[in-house]
Design a protein around this nucleic acid. Sequence first.
DNA 1: CCAGACGGCCAAAGCGCTTTGGACACGCCC
DNA 2: GGGCGTGTCCAAAGCGCTTTGGCCGTCTGG
Lengths: 341, 341
Amino acid sequence: MNLKELSALLGLSQTTVSRALNGYTDVSEATRARVQAAAKLHDYRPNTRAQALATGRSRVIGHVIPKISTHAMVNPIFADFITGAGETYSQHGYEMLISVVDVDEEEKAYRAMKRRGLVDGLIVSAPRRNDPRIELLDGIGLPYAVHGRATGTTRPYTWLDVNNRRAFARATAFLLDLGHRRIGLINGLEVMDFAHRRRQGYEEALRARGLAPDPELMRQDEMTEGYGWRAARDMLALPDPPTAFLVSSVVCMLGVRRAVDEAGLVLGRDVSAVTHDDQLSYLRDDGPVPAFTATRSSVREAGQRLARMVIDRIDNPEAPHRQDLLEADLIIGRSTGPAPS
Amino acid sequence: MNLKELSALLGLSQTTVSRALNGYTDVSEATRARVQAAAKLHDYRPNTRAQALATGRSRVIGHVIPKISTHAMVNPIFADFITGAGETYSQHGYEMLISVVDVDEEEKAYRAMKRRGLVDGLIVSAPRRNDPRIELLDGIGLPYAVHGRATGTTRPYTWLDVNNRRAFARATAFLLDLGHRRIGLINGLEVMDFAHRRRQGYEEALRARGLAPDPELMRQDEMTEGYGWRAARDMLALPDPPTAFLVSSVVCMLGVRRAVDEAGLVLGRDVSAVTHDDQLSYLRDDGPVPAFTATRSSVREAGQRLARMVIDRIDNPEAPHRQDLLEADLIIGRSTGPAPS
DNA sequence: CCAGACGGCCAAAGCGCTTTGGACACGCCC
DNA sequence: GGGCGTGTCCAAAGCGCTTTGGCCGTCTGG
């Protein structure tokens, strides 16, 4: 059933039927009701492609996954983030397009998306410092919103981020208050803006207590379980090992716990650890007292909010850019305790 | 730059330019070369929406994520699967559309996708036993391919699955060979077809050695770290505890390891465990000797292959349905050893 | 030398929708 | 009664592609 058939059935013009369904006021309420009833009865849905062609808007929002190589890491927060965004999109009548793109073809991919009219807007994930994509997208003229920030970028842009610096400063201060003096940082890759900011928070909190950050206690890598394990194991084997860890992801934290266990130590007694917790659904740490002390911020909720932000930009491209800085909660779990004396 | 402008520029008709770019033979090689050069020079990309409208094909493949409630679990394999599929799609000029849909509106969503011409085909994930979606999609007339199988469905359909029954039978036999007699099964939800098959394999292997499956040693739930931990902890506290576990996912396995550690036992010595390993990138278990003995099968590769299968169905809807049964590798790691005597 | 095949090109229709620019009828006021 | 606003409706023109059906000249074989 298409518009032509539906209007023939009703004895009305396509114009009138279209306008009735789209809420225009120049159609009488009686006709509108009749049209709506018929549309419902025959389960009429306007063809998206035709609609998109006629209106110039596709009602699709794109997410680009840059692919480094065939064996590249998939971001573990990806699934929860997507789910959150997808919820908001469907509430607002948008669809989500996901494109896996070779990292060196990313620019071409963005341009193609625009030219081909594939999407009305984009979500930019995993911004790096001075991320070139922001200027690029402004140049292309595609509305977008960034998940995270790109330190060093001067032009205004729309973003949503967790206050990573503050979260890690608080977590560090918390560990310092517990008497820990040597605190290992098991960070994500610091080309990633969030990881860079986390280190800043960590160093800042140390310096505020007159402690100098020790390069030996700072690691960065892709956040896998294996990396968490290796990093913690190696640091625990140092002559002057840390008594606490600050960890960038629950996935890594699981590796840290393994290393601590294997060293014959007890987490929360001999060694403390605080992790950042994105509240990934399959690693949810609930229960009366959570296993891990964590700076917590839901990535699914971030997805929801950011989706709304792109939609707003699409609807209103001239509006000033919005920024949203979420504070992470500090959740006290069983992985921290006073520093052993 | 659109087709009209490009053809004006070349002094050719739109027809000729279009046909030149689309590889028709009724345009001279000289003209074709000239057209291609101009297209490249001006970075011409046909507008997807117009193309879709004209051809009746959108070159988009849909993935539906059924949403149970706001706090529902996101499948941890989702991200890697998507990445695999996305790689294949982009190689073949397809885009991937992901739709988060309330589970009770799934049927409506599929119908809408068809009517609105949103997608040319679909991937069906997480099939349940007697999954109604297969008949539904046949009825709607939308090509699809299923990731997994739906036991009880009689009509032919296209699927790709891991031989879960065989994998778990092998793993069970392996543990039995090591002398284990009480083997706990920490399974996924058994409404899911894969989990049901895994239990079959497990029970089959036990019975082949004259052992009766003990309901006390069989759990099923959503596969989170916490579930793995609780299940293992509870079973280890039984009067006659298992000496080995069979675990449905590395995510659960991490919880199992935690429970084993907390019980003061050593994994691979006091307690053995075999897990299924989807080779999720952020939980990759490499290293010279992997930490976990596992039945291993790459979900990313599954995504790649399945993507190709839908594309084949779209290109050739009358071809017989293809089925693809992948055998999992049994990888011996450090989480298994002879049963303690 | 002519019919027919063929290579190379094009005008125009059509995909299913939205939107522009009226048309028409009616009632109101001066 | 003529002019004017108002409330409803519609024909037709696009949106940017693909595809159908044909045109026109050149080549080939009988």
